[in-house]
Computed example of a mutant assay.
Amino acid sequence: MAEASLLDLKGLNCPLPVLRTGKALRALAAGDLLIVEATDPMAAIDIPHFCREQGHRLVEEKKEGAVLRFIIARGA
């Protein structure tokens, strides 16, 4: 079963959420899950785009109040 890690990026502004997401994904094994929570509205654009460009799978994207929550499966 894939491991899951939580990355709390609430309060950080662009470009930090996507940069820190990339760094956290590099530390994971292929198939592992990263749960990202951010409050920067640009993360709703940046993180899905980053996943498409880098070959990661965006498993889920949800907004709860001001918090954007992404579940990302690390690509190969």
Score class of each variant (00 low, 15 high):
61 E>A: 10
18 V>Q: 12
6 L>A: 07
65 G>C: 06
52 R>Q: 14
58 L>M: 10
56 H>C: 11
37 E>G: 00
4 A>C: 05
38 A>E: 02
63 K>L: 03
5 S>K: 13
24 A>P: 08
76 A>S: 12
11 G>P: 07
76 A>E: 11
14 C>S: 15
5 S>A: 14
55 G>C: 13
70 F>R: 02
7 L>D: 10
35 I>G: 01
59 V>I: 12
10 K>A: 03
20 R>N: 15
42 M>R: 15
39 T>F: 02
4 A>M: 10
37 E>S: 09
19 L>P: 02
12 L>A: 04
14 C>R: 06
54 Q>D: 12
7 L>V: 08
53 E>D: 14
63 K>R: 15
52 R>W: 09
15 P>L: 12
64 E>V: 07
33 L>H: 08
21 T>N: 06
14 C>V: 11
58 L>S: 04
17 P>D: 07
1 M>K: 04
10 K>Y: 00
56 H>Q: 10
69 R>W: 01
28 L>K: 15
45 I>A: 05
53 E>P: 02
65 G>D: 02
19 L>N: 06
59 V>E: 12
49 H>G: 09
17 P>Y: 06
35 I>Q: 09
60 E>Y: 01
51 C>E: 05
48 P>T: 06
23 K>R: 15
17 P>L: 13
13 N>Y: 04
68 L>T: 00
22 G>V: 10
4 A>K: 10
56 H>Y: 08
37 E>D: 03
66 A>M: 04
41 P>N: 04
22 G>N: 07
72 I>R: 03
40 D>N: 15
53 E>T: 15
36 V>C: 01
5 S>V: 14
7 L>M: 11
40 D>I: 05
15 P>A: 10
36 V>P: 00
61 E>V: 00
27 A>R: 15
47 I>W: 01
43 A>D: 01
50 F>A: 13
40 D>Y: 02
41 P>W: 02
54 Q>W: 11
51 C>I: 06
3 E>H: 11
53 E>H: 14
12 L>D: 00
73 A>L: 03
21 T>V: 14
23 K>H: 14
38 A>L: 06
2 A>W: 06
